[in-house]
Design a protein around this nucleic acid. Structure first.
Lengths: 164, 164
DNA sequence: GTCAGTGCAAACTTTTTGCAACTAC
DNA sequence: GTAGTTGCAAAAAGTTTGCACTGAC
């Protein structure tokens, strides 16, 4: 794929080839959804996506949104995050750089990690036969303010390392 | 935490401190669920967990399973994977080694990656104030057999790199 | 012309909520 | 005794399915 293509053009072509390679039909709906996704940044849900489509005055059914997002995940053009227990959280894949997220399990705050070292070290991993399209890291733990809050409470509770 | 403790003892103590630090009550149900989870290996859903509890002859309501699994995620003793769009997929955290998964987006096959280099490179990442408990990598792409199937189909379709 | 894809609605599954009874503290 | 937790049931939310119509090939 040429370097001169815009991101939109690249993903369009990528999706076209994927559909071709799988005997799927290229419909206006599918491309419209792809482009709606790639005109946004950050995470979104099916509900958000429906609103974007409405704003674009391109109506598609909820059914189609579910089917097409699944298709885009399978085409490696979209990722599903483990951020919610109810509605699926998606995000487009902007490029093939690894993406890293830091998640405070306690307060659920999520931040992107910008570390170039982390990204670089991930890129060194390759597999013989498996064709890698993207790598994602989730770093889980406790943020500073949640740590403080817990320490404070632990002291107040006057910990005794009893029992097991 | 002592190195002599078994995994079960470690997570029990971890959970106890978490509850203490957050003013939560230590109930039989919570410990029973924690132990049910730590006697299993691999991924499970709420439904699976309910069956394990039944087998253990410790009945808890579905409601409690949802609340407690969420609690365990917040206590950094359990992870939620992005593997399903409907039911949540969980897995216990066996230790603080990074865990890596290779996922074929196309056929949804998931395999654990055993690369020590990958694990080691992830462990070099630290954050100033954020207390990291575990790191997870998902490597997405297309497996060998799915690649072959698609190439074959692409050839048959007699690709012309037209349009955009 | 054929059959995959779409829209619509219903069905189903998963998750959340409300409230009375219980129990850890 | 008080307030957080559990169980039960109902409600809500999210996802999937069935079928007739449409449109890509």
């Amino acid at each position: 794929m040429s370097d001169k293509m815009t991101l939109q053009e690249q993903v369009h072509e990528s999706f076209r080839l994927y559909m071709l390679a799988n005997g799927l039909r290229q419909t206006r709906e599918r491309y419209a959804i792809l482009h709606a996704i790639y005109e946004t940044e950050g995470t979104f849900t099916i509900d958000d996506l429906q609103k974007i489509m409405e704003k674009n005055r391109f109506y598609v059914s909820t059914n189609t949104l579910y089917l097409t997002t699944q298709l885009l995940v399978e085409a490696n053009l979209l990722i599903r995050h483990p951020f919610s227990s109810s509605a699926s959280v998606f995000e487009r894949i902007a490029d093939d750089r690894p993406r890293s997220y830091q998640i405070c399990s306690h307060c659920h705050r999520i931040t992107r990690i910008k570390s170039k070292e982390l990204a670089a070290s991930l890129e060194t991993y390759h597999s013989r036969s498996f064709h890698i399209t993207h790598r994602i890291v989730y770093v889980y733990g406790t943020c500073a303010s949640c740590q403080r809050a817990m320490h404070k409470r632990l002291k107040a509770a006057n910990v005794n390392s009893s029992t097991k």
